[in-house]
Structure formats: C-alpha cells, structure tokens
C-alpha cells in the first residue's frame, strides 16, 4: 500500500515565541558539518551536512572527455552531475534524471566555471558528481559549497572557493537559510553564491515576490551568512593537513 503524505503546510511559519519552526532565529544558519577526502577512489571528494541535507561530492580530472564530441579544442570543459537518491525525499524519487536535475546540474556548472583555469586543459574535462542523500531545502546551495570543497581537495588550480546560501521571505519577514518547508510555503526564495576572488555573484535564482528594497536588504543578509560559511570551508580544508602536522610537531608549529 502506498504511503500517503498529505501535502499540507502549516499556516504560520513562525512560532509564538518569534522563532522559526525548527527553533532558529531569523538569521541563524542550520548546523553545518563538512569533511574532505571521504571517497577513496575519487581525485577529490567532500561530504556536507547542512541541517538535514546530506551530500556527497566527487571530483575527477583532468581526464579524457566521453563522449568525445563534447571536447573543445581550445579549452577544457566542466561537467556537473547533480543527482538525488531515491530515498532522499518523502515520495520515492524516480532515479532517472529529470528536468529539475538537468537544470540544477547546468546552474551549478555555470556557477563553478569562473573558478577554474579551463583554458589550460584543452580537450580535457573535469567532472563533478554530486549525490544528494537526504534533502531538506537549499540543496543547490549546499551542492555548490560541497563542490568547491571537493575541487580544492582534488588539487585543481582554482582562483578561490565559492559559497552559496539561500535567503528569502516567509510570512512577510526576511530570513536567512530557508529549510524545506519554508522554501515551499514561504513568500520568496533566493539562492545566491559568491566567488571570493572578485566577490561577484555567481549564482542567483529567484522565486516568489519581493520589492526592490527588500531585495537589496536580503542580499546583505546573504553576504553576512556567506562569510560565516566560507570560514567553515577554509578551516575544513586546512584541518585535514594541520591535524597531521600537530600530531608530530608537538604543538610547536601551531599557527
């Protein structure tokens, strides 16, 4: 018998004490946990837990392009494969890539491309495989963050990292880091990503309604959150090596 889950959303997205449904403040992020080098056979890999989102990311490259007609003679290409596991959402997700997955793969590719020196690898490709094991709102932002980590872990020369977060409006109030239910029932949802070498926006999608003044305001909120997440990214990458250093230096080389 199929399991039926009613598609009902709560009327209010704020509790009576002014906090959000999961107990967060308006501008509080969900807990984030990152790890690099988790997959043995990939050139670089990352695992990200962002609230209830659980994401694995693997990077391979530079290597030959298959099918070969995709290769470009003057520059390398970046291919991103965003996939959701069948068990990642309430209803079983059909495993074949659908319209949504193809769109997100393209969006993520465009977001990551400015970081890389693709002109140095003509006829070759970098491939980023992202698998969402558990989804609860804002997976595309989490995927950008994880993919940047995995690329850096693979030793691919990069201009900088890229970080993404979703901001939006629920019940008329501007909030940071929307969860799944706020994403669906809220007024507006705006995922955005920043590349840190020029501090330019690399991903910006918008769904809902918001006036221009709020739009400016919400981008400022996003920037503040992105700085915090970027800090976690940097520490994750460094700690993989610093942990080994401290094991042997006896703390004398602590930075």
């Amino acid at each position: 018998m199929p399991l039926i889950i009613k598609d009902e959303y709560p009327e209010k997205l704020f509790r009576e004490d002014g906090k959000r449904l999961d107990g967060r403040d308006k501008h509080e992020l969900r807990p984030i946990k990152m790890e690099v080098g988790v997959l043995k056979n990939a050139d670089g890999s990352a695992y990200l837990e962002w609230g209830n989102n659980k994401i694995f990311c693997a990077v391979y490259g530079p290597r030959d392009v298959h099918p070969h007609y995709l290769a470009k003679p003057d520059k390398g290409i970046l291919r991103v494969f965003y996939r959701m596991a069948t068990f990642s959402v309430f209803d079983r997700k059909r495993p074949a890539p659908g319209r949504r997955e193809k769109e997100i793969s393209m969006v993520l590719g465009d977001c990551l491309e400015p970081l890389l020196f693709l002109e140095l690898y003509p006829g070759n490709s970098f491939e980023v495989f992202i698998n969402v094991m558990d989804a609860d709102g804002g997976t595309r932002c989490a995927c950008v963050t994880a993919a940047a980590l995995a690329l850096a872990d693979a030793g691919v020369p990069m201009r900088s990292l890229v970080t993404a977060v979703a901001v939006g409006k629920i019940d008329g109030e501007l909030v940071t880091d929307l969860s799944g239910i706020e994403d669906k029932a809220g007024d507006a949802d705006l995922p955005c990503a920043i590349t840190w070498f020029n501090e330019e926006i690399s991903l910006l999608q918008f769904d809902g309604s918001m006036d221009l003044k709020e739009f400016d305001e919400v981008l400022t909120l996003a920037k503040n959150a992105l700085i915090k997440i970027h800090e976690i990214q940097l520490n994750t990458l460094k700690n993989k090596y610093i942990a080994i250093q401290e094991e042997y230096s006896g703390g004398e080389n602590k930075k």
Partner: peptide, 9 residues
C-alpha cells in the same frame, strides 16, 4: 614555512 594555505587565500 609549514603554513597551509587554500585556494583564494
């Protein structure tokens, strides 16, 4: 120096 740096630093 044994200082670990990351892309973009």
């Amino acid at each position: 120096s044994r200082e670990v740096v990351v892309p973009g630093e």
